[in-house]
Simulated scan of single mutants.
Amino acid sequence: MKNKSAQVKAWKTVQTARHPERPQFLDYANVLFDDFDVLHGDRLFGDDSAMVGGLARFEGQPVMVVGQHRGRSTRERLKYNFGMCNPEGYRKSQRLLDLAERFNLPVLTFIDTMGAYPGVGAEERGQAEAIATSLAQLSRLKVPVIATVLGEGGSGGALGIGVADRVIMLSHSIYSVISPEGCASILWKTADKAEQASDALALTADKLKKMGIVEHIVDEGEGAHLNADLVMERLRHVIKENLVELQSMDADERCEARYQRLMKFGSENPGLAS
């Protein structure tokens, strides 16, 4: 019964993370930031609408903001490709991160994607290379980097903007190497086992915090879609607190701490069974 209860709880979190009325990146951007000036294009192929980023002010301080937007209506979802980025999206983020480094701007990223776009064209244009380059770039940035998982954090598509000094998750968001349906299809040959897979993947914020994958969880009650303003203010407070802490550190010290944070993943038994 304990395992079944855990499965139900994890699956409910997955459903909440995917709720159609859940606030998305641009909803948060309009509240958290002033003077958000969106920049376009990767200067190589084109502009990927699924990856949105640009210069903004957070609490009066200039920052670089990068996030994935999914869209809500059918027309919006098609425009933003359901939040699934193509290689040009990751190369656009790389261009913006270069600007952040050049002008010493903190980087704030916001994750909400099922995963990177898996189409043939994306693979032909170097999807894997684009994500790998993004990982390498984020790992060596001298400026502070804070990543927030807003809804669904899926696989390398999420990780492409997820390497950071601090990772924040909303309490009903999820972060995983694969979707529960994808995991179930591989392990049990049927997506009907998605509820069981959601628990086995340890994709909820509380389990990920226990493993040291994330540092902070923002309480959203029964779901951010029910009280968006309160959740956004709670997130603002957590980002501000972490930004102050990170900016008080020397750049080399901050990079070393980021390196050590990444290297400890998987080195300890988190005791998830407890």
Rank of each mutant, 00 (worst) to 15 (best):
F58I: 00
Q127I: 11
E129P: 15
R102E: 12
R75V: 15
K79C: 14
L39P: 05
E88W: 14
T113M: 15
M84W: 11
S139W: 02
V31P: 00
Q94N: 11
D35C: 03
Y28E: 10
N86K: 05
D48P: 01
G53V: 12
D98K: 07
L39C: 05
G60L: 00
G53A: 14
A132W: 00
V143A: 02
R77Y: 10
A128I: 14
N81V: 12
L141G: 10
D34W: 01
D27S: 07
F33N: 00
L44S: 13
N30K: 09
G154F: 11
V145Q: 04
F36S: 03
G46H: 01
A128M: 12
G151A: 12
F33T: 03
M114L: 13
A100N: 08
E123A: 09
G157I: 08
E123K: 09
Q61A: 00
I131M: 09
T74N: 11
F110G: 05
V31I: 05
K142P: 10
E129D: 15
R57T: 05
E124M: 07
G53D: 15
Y28V: 03
G156V: 09
A122Q: 02
D47K: 09
V107K: 12
L99R: 03
G60A: 02
G151Y: 09
D48W: 11
A50G: 14
G153W: 05
T74S: 15
L138A: 06
G151K: 03
N81E: 13
K79F: 13
R77V: 14
D98W: 14
S155W: 05
V65T: 00
Y117G: 15
G46R: 01
F33M: 00
L32N: 07
G160P: 01
L135D: 07
L44P: 00
N30T: 07
E101S: 12
D48N: 08
T148I: 11
Y90Q: 04
G126I: 02
N30P: 12
Y90S: 04
V38R: 08
G53K: 06
G121R: 04
Y80A: 02
A50T: 11
L39Q: 09
D34V: 00
G71A: 13
R72N: 03
P62G: 05
D34G: 04
P106V: 07
G115K: 00
A136P: 04
E124C: 10
L141K: 00
G41M: 11
S49A: 12
E129R: 14
A158Y: 02
D48E: 10
L78E: 14
T148V: 13
E59W: 07
H40F: 15
L108H: 05
N86I: 08
R140K: 08
H40R: 10
R43Y: 14
V145L: 03
A128F: 03
E129W: 12
S73P: 05
G154K: 04
G67C: 10
P106W: 06
